[in-house]
Design a protein around this nucleic acid. Structure first.
Lengths: 319, 319
DNA sequence: ATAAAAGCCGCAATCGATTACATGTTTGCA
DNA sequence: TGCAAACATGTAATCGATTGCGGCTTTTAT
C-alpha cells in the first residue's frame, strides 16, 4: 500500500494536520516543522492521495466535452477553441468521443459527472439528453436542438443552405444532387437541406438527394459516391459537410467529371488547405466562446435561463 | 451540491448500505428494495462520487490521454484509435490537450490523476515527466524518449528520414531544404532530420535547414515559408511533418514554383485527401494498440518492466 | 417440529486527506 | 508589566462511498 499522511506525520513527529498544512502551504508553520515534514515526505517517497483530497468537496473547476468524433476538423477546431477559452477562465477541460454511439455518449456523460465536472458541452443527439433536460445541470449543445431547456448554439443552417443553393443556381446549374454525409435524420443537416431545397424548388431545378452511411469507412464511402455519380447526371453536387464534398471531388476528378461542388462547415483547416472549395463557413471560435460563456454563467447562477437557440450568421466562401 | 448516497437512501427509505449494494449489485437484495432505490436514483439524478469510491480502492476503469493539440490529424487519429481500442478493453478514455505548454501538461496530469485514471498515454515532453518516471505509475509515451522507465512507442524516425532522402535523391534533387515544423529541439523530429542528413551528406547534396515557430498562426507560417523559398534556390524541400509540407506546397504553387516536396506522418486523412503527397507513413492504429496493451499490462502488473523503446517500421508512400 | 442455511438490511468503521476549533506559546507595543 | 495579536500545532469532524459484522426473518432439510 502507498504511504499515507499518517506515516509521514509519525516519522516527522507531528500531527497529520501539520503535514497537510505543509502540503498546502496554508496556515502558520514553523521553519522547523516544515523541514522535518518535507524530509519525511522525501524519505518515504510520499504522494498525496488525490481521491481523498477531492473528497473535501472543492469545486473541480473542470468542464467536460462530449463529441461524436475528431475525424472532422470542425470538431477538433471546436474543441481547441473551447479548451483555450475555458483555460483563460481557469477551467480545465476533459474530452470524450462517442463514435456516435448513443450508449457511449451516455456512459461518458456519467463518467464526466462522476468526476464532478461542473458542466458539459456536447454535440450528442442521444435521447438520454432529453431525459437530462430537466435536471438543471449545466449543459450546452453545439448545433443540436434537444429541448428548450438545453440551449443549442448553432449557425443559421437554413440561411447557409440557401446561400449554397443561390450560388449554385447563379453558376448555371440545372440538375443538382444534394448529398448528405449521414443517413440519420439529424437536426442541423436537415435544416441545411431545407434551405437548399427552398431555393432550388423555386428556381425550377431538377433535384435529387442521397445520403451516405455515417460509419462507413472512407473507401466504402468512395465507392458509394462513385455509384451515385456514375451517370454523370448532375452539373452540381451540394454536400452537407466539407469532408463529403472533398471526397466527392476526388472521386469525380478521377472520373474526369467536374460538376460544381459545394461543402459546408468551413473549418480553418479546410479553408487553409482547400481554399478553392466553395463552402459555408461557420464562425467556430465565436460559437465556442459563446458556449463557454453560457455554461460558465449557468454554473455560477443555476437559475439562469438560457434561450433555446443562439444563431450565428454564416458566410459563403468561394474562390 | 450534488446528490449523495445519503439522500438516495433517505428517499428510498433504506440505509446507505443498501443503496451501495444496489449500485454494486452485491450481497442479498430484495426485489422491492432494488426497485425503490433505483427509482430514487432516477428521481434524484444520482451520480456516484468517484473520489469517494476510489478511496475504497475501487478501480476507475478510466485512462487519460494528454496530447499537445488536435490540429494535426495524426493526433486526432491516434486518439480515436486509442479510444476505440480501450473501449473494447472496457476502459473509458479522457483526453486533454496542452497546446504544448509544459505548465498545462502538468496541470492536466494532476487533473487526470485526481480523477483516478489508472494510467496515462501522452505525447508530452515536459520535464515534469522525468520527475514522474520513478513513481512507477503507468505511463506510456507516444514518440517521446523521456526516460528509460517510461516507454516510448514510436516509429523508426531515423529510417523514415533516410527513406525520404533516398527518394529525394533518386528524383535527382541537388539542392535541398529541410524544413522543420518546430523550432524546439524535439526528439522525433530530430531523428528524422538526422536520418535525412546521413543520406544527403553522403550523396553530396547542397543542404540547408530551417524551422518554423510552432505556435505561429497558419498565415504567419505561410509568410515565413514564402520568405524561405523566395529565392527558389531548392529543387526539393523535405518537411518533418505533413502539414508543413502541404503549407509549403500551397505557397510554392502560388509562386508557380514546383520543387519536390515530402512530408512526414502519413495520417489516414492526409493520405485520403492528399494522395499525391510523398510522405512517410507511420502505422498509427498499430502504435495505438501497442500503447494500450502496454498500459493495460502495467496496470494489471505493476512490476511489469517496459522496454524503453518500441520501434515500428515505416513506409514511404508516393504517387 | 426444529435446527441449519439462506436472505435481507442496518450500524458503524473505514479509506486519506482537509480544516474548524481549541489550546498553548511568542511577540509587540502601550 | 500586561494583554492583545500573531504564531504553532493538535484534536476531531468531515467529505461520500464501501463493507464486515450482527441481528432479524424466511426457507429448506431432516
Amino acid at each position: 500500500m502507498a504511504i499515507t499522511i499518517k506515516e509521514v506525520a509519525a516519522r516527522a513527529g507531528v500531527s497529520t494536520a501539520t503535514v497537510s498544512r505543509v502540503i498546502n502551504n496554508k496556515g502558520y508553520l514553523s521553519r522547523e516543522a516544515v523541514d522535518r515534514v518535507k524530509q519525511a515526505m522525501r524519505d518515504l517517497n510520499y504522494v498525496p492521495n488525490t481521491a481523498a483530497r477531492s473528497l473535501q468537496g472543492k469545486d473541480s473547476m473542470t468542464i467536460g466535452v462530449v463529441l461524436p468524433s475528431l475525424d472532422n476538423p470542425l470538431y477538433s477546431e471546436l474543441f481547441e477553441a473551447i479548451e483555450s477559452k475555458l483555460s483563460t477562465a481557469h477551467y480545465q477541460t476533459l474530452l470524450c468521443t462517442s463514435s456516435n454511439l448513443p450508449d457511449k455518449e451516455e456512459e461518458y456523460f456519467s463518467l464526466l459527472r462522476a468526476n464532478r465536472v461542473e458542466g458539459i458541452i456536447t454535440s450528442s443527439h442521444g435521447d438520454f439528453l432529453k431525459r437530462k433536460a430537466n435536471e438543471n445541470y449545466p449543459i450546452v449543445c453545439f448545433d443540436r436542438n434537444i429541448s428548450t431547456k438545453i440551449p443549442s448554439v448553432q449557425s443559421d443552417n437554413l440561411s447557409g443552405g440557401r446561400k449554397v443553393a443561390d450560388w449554385t443556381v447563379s453558376r448555371g446549374a440545372k440538375r443538382v444532387l444534394i448529398l448528405s454525409g449521414s443517413t440519420e435524420d439529424l437536426y442541423p443537416i436537415d435544416d441545411r437541406i431545407k434551405g437548399m431545397m427552398s431555393v432550388f424548388n423555386r428556381a425550377d431545378i431538377e433535384l435529387e438527394t442521397a445520403a451516405l452511411e455515417f460509419d462507413s469507412s472512407t473507401s466504402v464511402k468512395a465507392l458509394l459516391i462513385q455509384k451515385l455519380i456514375a451517370s454523370r447526371d448532375y452539373d452540381a453536387v451540394c454536400c452537407t459537410d466539407d469532408l463529403t464534398a472533398l471526397m466527392l471531388k476526388r472521386v469525380a476528378d478521377a472520373m474526369d467529371y467536374h460538376p460544381l461542388v459545394t461543402g459546408y462547415d468551413g473549418s480553418d483547416f479546410i479553408r487553409t488547405f482547400f481554399p478553392d472549395l466553395t463552402t459555408v463557413c461557420q464562425p467556430i471560435p465565436q460559437m465556442a466562446e459563446l458556449m463557454c460563456n453560457l455554461l460558465i454563467e449557468k454554473i455560477h447562477n443555476r437559475s439562469y435561463q438560457f434561450e433555446s437557440e443562439y444563431n450565428f450568421p454564416v458566410k459563403l466562401v468561394h474562390e
